[in-house]
Amino acid sequence: MNAVRLLPLLPLIAALTGCAGGTEPAAGQIVPNVSPAPTITLEEPPAAVDAPAPDVAIPTGPAKLAAALKKTTTELYAGIDGWVDSGKARPPQHVVLLALHHQRIYRTLARDSALTASVVRRLPRDMAVEARANTTAVGKLLAMARPITAAQRKKIRLATPLPAGRLRGYMLRAERRFGVEWEVLAAIMLVETRFGRITSSSSTGAQGPMQFMPGTWRAYGMGGDVHDARDAIAAAANYLKASGAPKDYRRAVFAYNHDTRYVDAVLAHAEQIKRDPRSFYAYYNWQIFVLSGRGTAKEDVRLTGPR
């Protein structure tokens, strides 16, 4: 069963990686259908929140970087608590900005293991555990990623994702039906399409927010629409169950994408969501980046998010 790969999304973050099984083509291959980055209407932040600008410089020294990560994570999770409690579908602006800064810090750390170790030593225990999970996941996906050209970037079709609460509801429904943990489904959707922000098909024809190849979809899609998030999430749970979940998640996720780095990344993110469900909402607000080929995080190209 094949389901594809575009770019390992997370840290590369741009685009899809592979899904529903099989041997995928080299990461970084994208196909047509140009569309501008979507415009999202955001709630205004409370006056007390001083969220970082979208492209503000990331600190370089361990002490300053640890302080920035601690402050950003604390404020982000407080913002997520307020957002979820408010019942509003779309995230407030300060949550989007804080999540982007959070993501950019991890993209920086994931490229430097010595810096990561020095930063982690300076963090409170729970935050240190989270930092190890995130740098592991982002680092694994960066290792899978390849730079893409400006011409390829123009072919990536983008969309505004469905509300986080609705997607989580679809995942919980799939968990009840198939016994596959919703956190694993969330981690796969994060890696594959950034929760549906990428709508392009892969270079081999994988489609939809969970990136299914046509043959795999026919076998596990249960007659649904591959582009419909509810149907695609249920199909992913169906496929993972048939591939060994929940007894053996490593085997099941490997069936989804035959790369152990992908498996490590997905399971690291899933475990973090289990430790703190607010991480799901943080990841939901992580944006799409692609590698420019120059090698540093600050030279990566961001395709979505606030400007």
Rank of each mutant, 00 (worst) to 15 (best):
G244Q: 04
D50I: 12
G224W: 02
S243C: 04
L97Y: 02
I273L: 13
S35G: 14
L12P: 10
Y106T: 11
A137H: 05
D300Q: 13
F280V: 02
G223L: 10
A37L: 01
L76V: 09
Q211M: 10
A137E: 01
G205S: 06
W83S: 08
Y283Q: 05
S203P: 01
S35D: 09
G244S: 02
M213N: 08
A89G: 02
K71S: 14
R230W: 04
L65I: 00
A110S: 15
P62Y: 06
P59T: 00
G208L: 09
V120P: 02
R5A: 14
P209G: 06
A145K: 03
R177M: 09
A67Q: 14
V49P: 01
V119Y: 13
L291G: 04
K155Y: 07
A78F: 08
H94V: 08
N2A: 14
F178P: 01
A128H: 08
Y281T: 01
W217M: 08
D231H: 13
L10K: 07
E271P: 00
K155L: 13
R166Y: 02
R251S: 12
A268T: 00
L76A: 12
Y283K: 08
L158V: 09
T204L: 13
K155R: 15
M189C: 11
A68G: 08
Q93T: 10
A232Q: 10
S292Y: 00
